[in-house]
Design a protein around this nucleic acid. Structure first.
Lengths: 178, 178
DNA sequence: GAAACCATGTAAGTTGTTACATGATTGG
DNA sequence: CCAATCATGTAACAACTTACATGGTTTC
């Protein structure tokens, strides 16, 4: 599913501006999707040009107009059509895991630090997602946020239980450099 | 980490041809990285041109020469340099989870089928990864394959325990179409 | 007073995929 | 006999990110 289609989908949940859609990507969707303004704004313009969205400009003083998008009936149909197609497979790309593959090339301290930071990141994500969960009504949104939480917790558990397997083989270089 | 750098890294583990590197991506790395021939072959050519790899063509009868790449000392340094930089954050993109966000727009049967297929996919991945695990010696490789297994297992557990939350809200459309 | 937030948009650049081009061999 | 495996490579295309362009407001 491309950004364009996801924007359309998010607008089935509520009317929103490009900026608010970006926030959505950074909050609820942050664990399994990303999008920058550079892809969101053009997507919204194009969808509007195609009649799948309408746009109402709310004049704001001393600021660019806030453009609130609303999905049209044609937009809803188009989105249902996209949803009906079998979902593609996940695309994952983890620098962290790629690095762990080469754990034995890293100085022990550096490796330990990377792992510690990873754990911190997971714990921070858990706190953020839990905070979001409080005012979520939609079952779908709750499901995916909880999924993210379960994933972060599983990752923490796995890493804590197994880090010794790679740390015991890491390079034992005494002096790091400076 | 881009494909280019990962190819370089894989060649720190053993000499390999482009074809074999592709296999590696489809096996050990399949859960958290992907790469097509269209990115691998040009990457290897470029790395060779830059002196980070050497290439030995093994003539094969009735087949294109098999080009076996080997990392050079300069290549090793370049890779260590890349490893030293802090890893970027994960990039995940899951069509499945995006679809689940809109579970209430889907006919109940379709939703149930998507979830069932997802579970099948996870179970198949577990079998494949377990098979790979048998002849793995490197601690790093073992760590990441086990990580994948833990992830698949956590996903199955989560989905089985929570699918009812979205399935009870799915559209109750009696006739699907045909 | 600096950083982050609000608010939109474009253009250039990166990175990668898909499809094409070629073709023998092996296993079911 | 059909599909998969082995084996390499290129060109066109897609999709997205980064950086630029602009500028007031709120929070620490």
């Amino acid at each position: 599913m491309d950004i364009r289609t996801l924007c359309l989908g998010l607008l089935t949940l509520r009317d929103a501006s490009g900026y608010e859609i970006k926030k959505s990507f950074e909050n609820d969707l942050s664990d399994f999707y990303e999008a920058s303004f550079g892809s969101i704004y053009p997507a919204l313009s194009k969808l509007t040009a195609e009649g799948l969205l309408t746009c109402t400009a709310q004049p704001q003083e001393k600021r660019p107009d806030k453009k609130v998008y609303r999905i049209t009936p044609a937009g809803r149909l188009a989105f249902l059509d996209a949803l009906a197609k079998p979902p593609g497979r996940d695309h994952v790309r983890s620098d962290f895991l790629a690095t762990m593959l080469f754990a034995d090339l890293l100085p022990a301290r550096h490796l330990a630090q990377l792992i510690d930071e990873r754990l911190v990141m997971h714990r921070r994500s858990i706190l953020e997602q839990r905070a979001l969960l409080k005012d979520v009504k939609s079952a779908g949104k709750r499901f995916i946020i909880d999924y993210g939480l379960a994933w972060h917790e599983a990752a923490i558990a796995y890493i804590e239980e197994n880090r010794h397997l790679i740390e015991s083989e890491a390079l034992l270089t005494p002096g790091g450099g400076s």
